[in-house]
Amino acid sequence: MIRCLLPFFIFLLFIIEGTVFQVFSPDRFGSEAIIIPRFAFIFVIVITIFLGRTTGGIYAIVLGLFQDVIYTHVLGIYIFSMFFTAYLLGFTYKIFQKNLYLLIITAVFGTLVLDYLVYGIHFMVGITNLAHEQFLYERLLPSLVVNSVFMIIIAFPLRKFLLFLQKNDDVEEKINKRKKDFRWQR
């Protein structure tokens, strides 16, 4: 039951990215910089690191699908980029779970990879012709700062929660194994 909290939180963040965050976005107050929030995706990366590549990959595909249908209108861009990034970062497990700093750096690095992938695909398809330098200074760096701040705030409680889930899983597995063994013995 408690596992359902994860998709709920991701959906909530996904909605906030497009609605509340856009109402208070910096370009409303006359700023050049554009901040791309990747809050939901940060969640997905951390989930991939803790719960494995398969679970994380499924989360990434579903989140990407939502992003594509509702915001981008070009199917496939986010499904591919998010799955690819999450899967790639899924290889870095064990050490990264123990160290909070490494976890934060990995998640922020993930948003960086995702933004570059999305920019690359948009550039290739011809939806945008933004120069790389402009992309770097006006979009990537400001959003990197905001996403890092979000990750630093969320890292500790999220890690706690995921470790708790992992432990739950282990306990369940053990119980199941015992049951099995018990049956075998009989």
């Binding site: 609605t19 856009q22 791309i36 929030p37 509702i70 915001y71 981008t72 948009h122």
Partner: peptide
Amino acid sequence: VIHRSPDRWNEFIG
């Protein structure tokens, strides 16, 4: 207006 695409690659609003 209910949403705006968070990555401003396209300028769409819902």
